[in-house]
Design a protein around this nucleic acid. Structure first.
Lengths: 105, 105
DNA sequence: CGGTATCCTCAAAGATACTG
DNA sequence: CAGTATCTTTGAGGATACCG
């Protein structure tokens, strides 16, 4: 999809993705979480989608991945400081969505 | 695409759409605009996409369509008061996008 | 002037199974 | 435990032509 001239799309491209808001809220609210903790906390997500969206968030510096070379393997994900700059926007979108559902559903 | 449990997606589903941010900013900044004014102001958009996204915004009460039975036909679009409740969020997304591009592009 | 109609492409997301 | 690999489906968006 070619770019448009509006930077809102650049911001949206980073937070949209079916599971990204849920992933972000989970990490924002709960701090560092392991892969399978996220899998359990986010209802209905498959490992494929969780891995894919986490990787995109990591590539955009929103989320930090840490791997511990233990047996069994342990990997954690957490918000970066930069990622936390999305917190207010996400909260406002959340509130707007709740209000919209109340009015129109 | 089945719904997730996060209302951020409900908000995003209303403002995302490739041309919606550009349409919304144009109407927010310039007030009421005719179809072909929007077409000229928004670079690269086709009539099909403009009509489609305007209709979705109208269905969600974000934009109001007014038709004048003149010859030639005249139709205008403007933000609703409810639609204006998105203004702050759009501005924040815009600023975040600009800053993100500055940092990572 | 303000749109539709048709056809096409491609990427996002789902289902299921498998691996270091 | 933390993911990949494959295959399939769906729908957003584009191109182009036409209409009341």
């Amino acid at each position: 999809m070619k770019k448009t001239n509006c930077e809102v799309n650049d911001a949206l491209s980073i937070i949209s993705g079916k599971w990204k808001p849920a992933i972000l809220f989970t990490l924002i609210s709960n701090g560092s979480k392991r892969f399978n903790e996220l899998e359990r906390l986010i209802n209905g997500i498959t490992p494929r989608m969780l891995a894919k969206e986490l990787k995109e968030l990591e590539n955009n510096q929103i989320v930090k991945r840490t791997q511990y070379e233990t047996i069994p393997l342990k990997v954690t994900y957490e918000m970066t400081e930069y990622g936390m700059s999305l917190k207010d926007i996400l909260i406002k979108l959340h509130e707007w969505g709740i209000n919209h559902n109340r009015l129109y559903k």
